[in-house]
Design a protein around this nucleic acid. Structure first.
Length: 828
RNA sequence: GCCGAAGUGGUGGAAUGGCAUACACGAUGGUCUCAAAAACCAUUAAGCGUAAGCUUGUGUGGGUUCGACUCCCACCUUCGGCACCA
């Protein structure tokens, strides 16, 4: 029995053949010692998950297109890949299935690498980094120690999600509707000593330097700016009645100080226990405070959620008029922002307004609306705009924006407070009470206190013979061999820190390691790194717009400050790609809407899957996956395949004769070169680049049905069109393009062939079609010679039959000409 | 809730102040074939009209403009992030 070959082209022969060929000629291998003409193309390194889906593929395919295109433009392209290999899922798998995290992680990496190969994406695997291996995390720990030495790593108490039943800390993800995902126990907030990085010291530089990032998407910069959240204001010292303590409040609206009718504290505020101590309602107050503290932060900051509060029974003194102001505790005040205490001005802040209404607190207008005077009793919402000062002593009658500065001056002169800057950005909590992460290199000595592990003793190795408990408790705490050690300073018996680092620390410097990945005596070679960085093109998901990118920028700035590197921004160009959805939602295993690439690649080949992924839509936007669309891409490649193999002998010698078509094909060829080049240089417009190549293919087929105007000339035009199609397609579909290139009789790899250049003289058109509108509506189209004079054009338009019927007998008010495109006749 | 983004045919999308729906998918009809697949040809926003053509139409409502998918204001819906998923 003969099984018929139903493939449109022999992708399964082609793909392994050329992938081996590229390996043999070391197409993607780069010696970083020589950085001349370098181009560093980087994709965000992935967390190793068991199976990649087509949504993941988008990132790698986009990066591969960029790398191959730049290669063809003559750059020395470094495109490395690695794995962000520490993290929660591997640990969960170990707890559930008993497979050690290292084993499952390395298995996943192996699977992923074979999937990369299936997609035909090429990396310089000599540069691979894996963040969970000691040769890498040694240097993550080294960065921690450097930060510690500079006072930028420190310990303080912070709240964590705590499951009282499992006796373990939970990630936000492990808290489902306020309950532990493992045992469904109500989760509460627990105070724990934890390690932080002082990223807030860099807040201002991280903010200001966003201006340097001219090649970043504006939306990402805006998100970072809002995340850093700089605000300028005044810190006021409120004296507490009957106490020596003072309450510090930060406000951006010092102009409203005379309207403060209560103070509100976060339930976590350190003075809360002291303030309510001895009160007759102490027990009830404490209970209420605890309830507020257990609410999640997102709930608490939501403005549509019911505001809750309780009066402490204490008062402070308003420094501008010596008024007694009651002190409340309120759920909408967050300890993390500002001082954890606010002066509440119900008349001029909506949240305070709602709180005052609920608890019947006074509302006093101190800024009046100049157009519509306010009546405190009748207000439905707060008045937050600029206005005229009233009820504000010596400042009455001034504009509120002027008194903002005057009152601030007044506070500083009388030493009642001082101008201050606040950031929303908080210090980076890097402690994780987990096993599968880089151990924090700290030793606690009973005599010497906190001692960082000296560089010569790094890495602090994560032990592998540990016991995983079903509760999720960190096995590090239970490992005596790990915990018990000697103090590196005095040699006394000491214990190790058992917290590990947030995986964002691992990923905040990996792009530096790629350049010189095998050094054992330093994290990277400074000189080489300085030549290759910043990264020329960084590509990844928009979901990383804030955290990962901000942390990387911070670590880069820190390394610059300690003179480890010579630049202070890591990524010059940033591209954030959209998600691939299926049935309107993000692809994920748990949703059961994952499209696996394996079967598609088997059925249509990698080039087809690549082409469809790129054609699906603008890469920065989300896109809906359709298996049908894949078939379309497959058929297109089949069409190109037949064109390339058969264009020479498949041409009819007689038929319709239209010599103009040949000139048009030459023009189209060069227009397509221009369009594709612009689409790749000006942005990542792969979808429109591909559609323009499709148009060229369609026009080439159309031309083949025409008799030649002269054999040699049309032969040349046709050959040029076909070769152009192949070379323009090559970054998108490398395997089939390389095969077709060789079949066209070329000897070298298509990626060494150089990018085609468009010939402007070939694009000149003799005549143009001008759209003619009457009052903005298209009424006709006329053919005119290109470069026609304005008067001649007017004449041609007005003698057009269709236009005459609209214009005759009417007053022409205006005659608008858009050169080479359109005219619009405005009639009354 | 806050911050960011997006809403265009049956579907993915194109057009960033100048021809709305390029390119593709799907669908319908046809050619080839014993048949199918593949390929090729034609039609494909809606409504009216025998036709030439006309009218409406880019989430909703308003505005700016000779001209608006594009700019401005308000609203609605969907998606991403919100600091222990990475």
């Amino acid at each position: 029995m003969i099984i018929e070959d139903t493939r449109l082209f022999p992708y399964d022969d082609i793909e392994p053949k050329w992938q081996k060929f590229w390996q043999d000629i070391r197409l993607t291998s780069v010696d970083t010692a020589d950085a001349r003409n370098k181009y560093y193309c980087l994709m965000m390194f992935p967390y190793p998950s068991a199976a990649l889906h087509v949504g993941h593929g988008r990132n790698y395919i986009i990066g591969d297109v960029v790398a191959r295109y730049k290669m063809m433009r003559g750059f020395k392209v470094l495109s490395p890949m690695g794995f962000d290999a520490f993290g929660l899922p591997a640990e969960n798998a170990a707890i559930k299935g008993g497979i050690p995290p290292k084993t499952s992680t390395l298995n996943n990496i192996k699977k992923m690498k074979s999937q990369f190969a299936d997609w035909g994406v090429g990396y310089d695997w000599d540069k691979e980094v894996i963040s969970c291996l000691p040769d890498y995390y040694k240097w993550t720990q080294w960065i921690f120690v450097k930060l510690y030495e500079k006072g930028l790593a420190y310990k303080k108490k912070a709240f964590v999600n705590w499951c009282p039943s499992c006796k373990t800390v939970l990630a936000n993800e492990q808290v489902v509707e306020g309950k532990c995902e493992r045992c469904s126990t109500e989760v509460n907030q627990k105070d724990l000593e934890q390690w932080f990085f002082r990223i807030t010291n860099y807040a201002d530089r991280l903010l200001k330097d966003l201006d340097k990032l001219t090649e970043w998407p504006e939306r990402v910069k805006i998100m970072q700016k809002n995340w850093i959240g700089r605000s300028d204001g005044v810190e006021i010292d409120f004296k507490i009645e009957g106490s020596e303590d003072i309450l510090k409040c930060f406000t951006t609206r010092i102009d409203t100080i005379y309207g403060a009718t209560f103070l509100a504290l976060a339930p976590e505020h350190p003075l809360v226990p002291k303030l309510i101590k001895g009160s007759k309602d102490e027990a009830a107050l404490l209970k209420c405070v605890q309830k507020m503290r257990d609410e999640s932060k997102i709930e608490r900051s939501a403005t549509d959620v019911e505001k809750e509060g309780i009066f402490t029974g204490r008062y402070v003194i308003n420094p501008v008029n010596n008024e007694k102001i009651p002190v409340w505790i309120a759920n909408y005040i967050l300890m993390e922002y500002g001082t954890g205490a606010i002066m509440a001005v119900p008349a001029h802040d909506q949240r305070d307004f709602e709180f005052a209404k609920k608890y019947d607190l006074p509302i006093r207008v101190v800024i009046d609306d100049p157009k519509d005077p306010l009546d405190a009793g009748a207000m439905k919402t707060s008045y937050e705009a600029v206005g005229v000062m009233v009820n504000s002593g010596q400042f009455n009658g001034l504009s509120s924006d002027v008194s903002l500065e005057k009152i601030a001056d007044h506070f500083e002169e009388k030493k009642l407070g001082k101008r201050a800057v606040q950031y929303k950005l908080r210090d980076w909590l890097i402690s994780r009470q987990r096993y599968w992460g880089a151990p924090i290199p700290i030793i606690y000595c009973p005599k010497c206190g906190i001692v960082p592990v000296p560089e010569k003793d790094l890495p602090v190795i994560l032990p592998e013979d540990v016991e995983f408990r079903p509760t999720g408790e960190s096995p590090l705490k239970l490992s005596k061999d790990f915990v018990n050690t000697k103090c590196p300073v005095c040699g006394a018996a000491a214990t190790r820190e058992t917290d590990t680092m947030d995986t964002f620390v691992d990923s905040s410097w990996y792009y530096l390691r790629y350049i010189t990945p095998h050094l054992n005596d330093k994290p990277f070679d400074k000189e080489t790194v300085n030549k290759w960085l910043p990264v020329d093109q960084y590509i990844g998901g928009v979901e990383h717009a804030i955290l990962h990118l901000l942390y990387s920028r911070f670590i880069t700035k820190f390394l610059k400050d300690i003179d480890a590197i010579g630049f202070d921004e890591p990524f010059k160009n940033l591209f954030t790609q959209g998600m691939i959805t299926k049935n309107g939602i993000k692809m994920s295993k748990s949703k059961g809407n994952v499209v696996a690439p394996d079967e598609l690649i088997k059925k249509y080949g990698a080039d087809t899957v690549r082409l469809y992924t790129l054609f699906i839509g603008p890469p920065e936007k989300d896109a809906e996956w359709s298996d049908r669309g894949v078939e379309g891409a497959y058929r297109f490649l089949g069409r190109v395949w037949r064109l390339v193999l058969g264009y020479k002998d498949n041409r009819p010698s007689a038929g319709k004769t239209d010599p103009k078509k040949w000139d048009a094909l030459k023009r189209k060829t060069h227009q397509t070169i221009k369009k594709v080049t612009e689409d790749l240089d000006g942005g990542f417009h792969f979808n429109t680049a591909i559609s323009s190549i499709m148009e060229l293919v369609n026009e080439t087929y159309d031309c083949m049905g025409q008799a030649a105007k002269d054999d040699k000339a049309s032969e040349d035009i046709l050959t040029e069109a076909v070769q152009t199609v192949v070379i323009l397609l090559s970054p998108f579909v490398p395997n089939i393009s390389e095969e077709m290139w060789q079949r066209l009789g070329k000897k070298n790899s298509i990626f060494k062939a150089g990018w085609p250049v468009c010939d402007k003289s070939a694009m000149v058109e003799e005549s143009l079609t001008i759209v003619v509108q009457v009052n903005g509506k298209v009424r006709s189209r006329i053919e005119v010679p290109s470069g026609i004079a304005e008067e001649k054009l007017k004449e041609a338009v007005l003698t057009d039959v269709k236009i005459k019927s609209f214009v005759d007998g009417k007053d022409i008010k205006d005659f608008i000409i858009v050169p080479n495109k359109l005219v619009n006749i405005v009639i009354r």
